Every structure is written in C-alpha cells, then in structure tokens.
Simulated scan of single mutants.
Amino acid sequence: MTSVLIADDQPLQRFGFRMLLESQDDLTVLGEATDGTEAVRMTAELRPDVVLMDVRMPGLDGIAATRRIINAGHRTRVLIVTTFDLDEYAYAGLRAGASGFLIKDAHPEDVLSGIRAVASGDAVVAPSLTRRLLDAYVELLPAPRKDTPPHADPRLASLTDREREILTVIGQGWTNAEISARFHLAESTVKTHVTRILAKTGSRDRIQAVILAYDTRLVRPS
C-alpha cells in the first residue's frame, strides 16, 4: 500500500485527487494540506510515501515546501502536479528535490502511474517538458575549463565503463527497455546497473542521474 498526502489550496482539486486515489486498491490518502507550511508539517507527522504537491499555494509555495521536505531527510518523495506548464516551475521543483513533475491536464492513469513510479524510487516528468527542461538547464551550466579532460568530474570516477555508458543514455531519456535492447542486456541487469549508478553517484533517483549526466557533460542538448 502506497500512502499519499495531497497538498493543494483548491478544495475541488483535493477532492478530485482523493476520489481518484481512493478508487485504487494499492493507494491510500493519509491527509490533505492546504498550503506549503501545512504540507511540511503533515509530512513530518504522517510520513507519507508520496506528496502530491501543487506549486502555487498561499504562504509557503510548493517549491519551497518540497525543498524543506527533502532537506528534512524523510523517505517521502514529492510529485509536483500543477496547472502551469512552465519550465521555470519544473526546473525549480526538480532542483528542490521533487521526483516528478506532471501537469494537471494529465490523464488520470498518468497521475496514478506517476505516483507509483516515484514511490518505487523512479522518476517521472511530463513528456512535453522533458527536452525543453534539459535543454534550458544545460544553458545555465558554466563553460568547462579548457584544461579539464572530458567527463573528469569526480562524481563519475567510481563508475565502470559500462555504467558510464548507461548513465549517458539515461541522460538521453532512454528507458530500461531501450537500454536493454541497445546493449543486449536483460532488463534485470539494466536495473542493477541503474541502482549501482545511483548509489555510486549519490543520485537520489533517475531524474537526479539525468541532471548529473548534463552537469558532467556526458550529454549535451540536441
């Protein structure tokens, strides 16, 4: 059973999320928060597996609330679900530690699969945002020093050649199935490699691994 806290300042939106989640046998709603401050407090008290987090809320907004929840060290993961298809919200939310970002016009099944994905340690970003988000993000990176060898970042030092290859295609948005087909590996083997990559690089989830691939310039925008 995956436990969820709903954080949204709109009563009708909270009601809709609750109805959707309670229709599923494997999901349970622990509570509802009406603003970011309440979301942080209730997360500390209830320790949900996932917080469904709105962005624009009175007082403490969803981005700041996400940052506080993640910095507190709880096992809770945050899935931001917002009305606004804006890159700056997605970028800020993911950098704050959210494990996913969806738009509220997503199909109900996409919201449900997103909750399950982040609860299991994976990550999800609305497809319409992914390439725009990463291409915009890479523009903010400082230019590499001329005397720095390619991919010399110490965060990559412990990776094997195979793990570095897999991190590269993760950064390009490849799924485990696509990695399995490209490298002729069983999907279970790919999952093992991904787990080791996350552990060795200190990445919390797949999204953080994608950001790392861009940070270290294993991947560049198309």
Rank of each mutant, 00 (worst) to 15 (best):
Asp8Ser: 03
Phe17Trp: 11
Phe17Lys: 08
Phe17Cys: 04
Met19Tyr: 02
Asp26Val: 07
Asp26Tyr: 13
Gly31Met: 15
Gly31Thr: 15
Ala33Glu: 11
Thr37Lys: 11
Pro48Lys: 14
Pro48Glu: 08
Asp49Val: 03
Val50Gln: 13
Val50Met: 11
Val51Asp: 15
Leu52Ser: 01
Leu52Pro: 02
Val55Trp: 04
Met57Glu: 03
Leu60Met: 12
Asp61Ile: 09
Ile63Gln: 15
Ala65Met: 12
Thr66Met: 07
Arg67Phe: 01
Arg67Lys: 09
Ile69Gly: 08
His74Ser: 03
Arg75Thr: 13
Thr76Leu: 01
Val81Leu: 05
Thr82Asn: 10
Thr83Leu: 03
Asp85Phe: 02
Asp87Lys: 12
Ala90Gly: 10
Tyr91Arg: 01
Leu94Pro: 07
Arg95Thr: 06
Arg95Leu: 10
Ala96Ile: 04
Gly97Trp: 02
Gly100Thr: 05
Phe101Asn: 09
Ile103Lys: 15
Lys104Gln: 06
Ala106Cys: 14
Leu112Arg: 05
Leu112His: 01
Leu112Thr: 08
Arg116Thr: 01
Ala117Tyr: 00
Ala117Ser: 04
Ala117Trp: 00
Ala119Cys: 05
Ser120Lys: 04
Gly121Ala: 07
Val124Ser: 11
Val124His: 12
Pro127Trp: 01
Pro127Cys: 02
Ser128Asp: 02
Leu129Gln: 05
Arg131Asp: 12
Arg131Met: 14
Leu133Ile: 09
Tyr137Gly: 09
Val138Cys: 12
Val138Arg: 12
Val138Thr: 14
Glu139Met: 10
Leu141Ala: 09
Pro142Ile: 06
Arg145Asp: 08
Arg145Cys: 03
Lys146Ser: 11
Asp147Lys: 15
Pro150Asp: 07
Ala152Lys: 01
Thr160Glu: 09
Asp161Ala: 03
Glu165Met: 00
Ile166Lys: 07
Thr168Trp: 06
Ile170Met: 10
Gly171Arg: 00
Thr175Asp: 00
Thr175Asn: 02
Ala177Leu: 02
Ala181Gly: 00
Glu187His: 12
Glu187Asp: 11
Lys191Met: 12
Thr192Ser: 11
Arg196Phe: 08
Ala199Ile: 04
Lys200Gln: 13
Lys200Cys: 10
Lys200Val: 07
Lys200Pro: 12
Ser203Ile: 06
Arg204Tyr: 14
Asp205Thr: 01
Ile207Pro: 07
Ile207Asn: 09
Ala209Met: 05
Leu212Ser: 09
Thr216Asp: 03
Ser222Asn: 08
